[in-house]
Write a protein that binds this DNA or RNA. Structure first.
Lengths: 133, 133
DNA sequence: TCAAAAATGTTATGTTATTACATATCAATT
DNA sequence: AATTGATATGTAATAACATAACATTTTTGA
């Protein structure tokens, strides 16, 4: 039976990767995920990268470009409105995902000004979180 | 003799790498730079990465995190005020560097709101430039 | 000149990601 | 149930990006 939600049911490997990311306190690299899933039969990086590609496409997982690592989406569903920004603590590696509409709008206007057809935005803020000052 | 400018004189390898980036139409990967400088005696990636580290520190070069590539700063000097954003055309790979003060200010406020001590921002916008629509 | 610091050279290795190709699973139709 | 086509998975090899460790040279400044 098909889900009544907007997301398709996850396949076996997608589910395994997603669950690892959901349980993680911090972002994980693809190779960390691979190691965590060796017990489930994972043998090769591609098994992880293929699952990640789909999860990112579904908006369930985001890639942090400045860390080469991945996090589960902290919202119910980011498929429609991509997150505005990530704040990444360089001390504890915690990440918070921000959905700031006015930032998104600002970036959209900036692109319009330059006649740039905006497809995707990457905003990553590094520093110290309130617990690590 | 020391320079009267805020930047130190560039060392031999730094100058070679910087000049390659200045002349490039598009961002270059470290390994592309290495290949372009083999004729000047470069043999190993570290020669490039070490020069890039310094050039980035001086604000003369920026790393594009979403491309794993580097560009020469399009301003005279970004050492003091880091660039607000990069617009990257996925078709022609052209990059334009934007110094949008209100964006920087917006990001600063966002961090303040969360009691986050902001150190560095990465903003990269992907899409199609006006010439590639 | 001398010592400390910075820059460079070189080899090896570590880390991240993709190509290429084979096989399996699933869903829709005949 | 068999056929087909699309999607997902398995596996090996390799490409692409980046750093560790150590030796040597150059630069800087006391």
């Amino acid at each position: 039976m098909a889900s009544h939600h907007s997301q398709p049911e996850l396949k076996k490997n997608q589910k395994l990767v997603f669950d690892v990311l959901k349980d993680a306190a911090n972002p994980l690299s693809a190779y960390s995920i691979l190691d965590l899933l060796r017990g489930e039969g994972f043998r090769a990086p591609l098994q992880v990268y293929r699952a990640l590609d789909k999860l990112v496409e579904f908006g369930l997982v985001h890639k942090l470009e400045t860390l080469n690592a991945f996090v589960a989406c902290s919202h119910d569903d980011c498929a429609l409105s991509e997150p505005a920004a990530f704040m990444i603590c360089d001390a504890c590696e915690s990440v918070s995902e921000l959905g700031d509409a006015s930032l998104s709008s600002h970036l959209g206007k900036l692109a319009n000004t330059e006649n740039f057809a905006l497809k995707h935005t990457t905003v990553e803020l590094h520093g110290r979180c309130k617990n690590c000052l």
